[in-house]
Design a protein around this nucleic acid. Structure first.
Lengths: 190, 190
DNA sequence: ACCTGAACACCGTTCAAGT
DNA sequence: ACCTGAACACCGTTCAAGT
């Protein structure tokens, strides 16, 4: 219950939360294992018990990011009573806002560094894709069906949302243009 | 004319080309100013004359990337005689192939690190957007017109291509799925 | 103008040792 | 099991000095 309660097994969680904050506020370059250790009041070698190397920490952050984004998407797509196009636009907005607020994290999530193999990350990404697909299939007249054509359209939808999110996060388009893109995407996909 | 001809002013170019190779083969993490200097047979402080810091080198790489990609896009969109949808698919393929071959570079191009202000990069990105727009306007029946609606569609096109490219470069979809995405995007935009 | 060489303050990673 | 502390081999960046 003291300030050092992380000495009893939750150092991993403490490091992950601090890392997520740093990533949000300082970007990837500002993230140092040694500084995280200092912040947690622990030796610089202690994180190694929980993350074998720096990349393992980044992978864990990406997994958490996918899980959070998936939760947000499911929530936004689930607003019963509202017409489908409105829910569609809400899902798109959630994605884009996430990308803008967590630009560095989005990068970790969608760009696979080198030739690693990280099952947890693949699973988390798969669950995210699945959530988008499930929402998309919930449109009136589409419920239940999962034809090959719809799988393709679902992938195109993910790509489109990803592209809008990246352009928004990268600052290449402004807020008004983002809103227009969401409306146009809604017109096409909803 | 000797091996050390970069001592006469082209060290910048030598560094940029070596950096582009390293970026392609080793990714961003494998890129070190000191190692580039060693490779060029020059002291580790020499690059500083041409690039004030590491980020300046990365910015220069991103500018070059945009210029190369813009050239490829213009070329692919300009194949006279072929019907527009075929040229459209060719443009999309060029973009996606570039993203796959130069994944680390694509990241430098489309994600703005921190709050820098790099006019050359903005210009290069703007020229790229412009090239896509010019090609898009060259479609039969659209030539010359630049309505607000078409600007919006052009932006959506860029976003879609960017999303497909990112998913492909990140290894989240395979080659067959990429080709399907390009076909579906062609069906919508061409 | 352009480059060198030493120096500074950081890293990530490893490993023997402690409790 | 979990953490410490010293050590190693790297970084990026700075700066006086050389030519």
């Amino acid at each position: 219950m003291t300030d050092r309660s992380f000495h009893h097994g939750n150092l991993r969680l403490v490091l992950l939360e601090a890392a997520a904050d740093t990533l949000r506020e300082q970007g990837l370059d500002g993230l140092s294992l040694r500084e995280l250790a200092r912040g947690a009041g622990v030796s610089h070698a202690a994180p190694r018990r929980h993350f074998p190397d720096r990349q393992a920490l980044l992978d864990a952050l990406a997994v958490d990011g996918f899980e959070r984004l998936t939760g947000l998407i499911v929530e936004a797509g689930h607003e019963d009573g509202r017409p489908y196009p409105q829910r569609f636009a809400a899902v798109a907005r959630v994605f884009v806002n996430f990308a803008t607020d967590e630009a560095a994290l989005l990068e970790l999530m969608f760009t696979t560094k080198s030739a690693r193999q990280v099952p947890e990350l693949d699973d988390a990404a798969g669950a995210f894709f699945q959530a988008i697909g499930t929402f998309y299939a919930s449109a009136p007249g589409r419920t239940g069906r999962t034809s090959a054509d719809e799988q393709r359209l679902r992938r195109l939808l993910v790509a489109t949302l990803q592209g809008i999110a990246t352009l928004a996060a990268g600052g290449r388009i402004d807020a008004a243009e983002v809103e227009q893109l969401i409306e146009d995407a809604t017109a096409i996909f909803a």
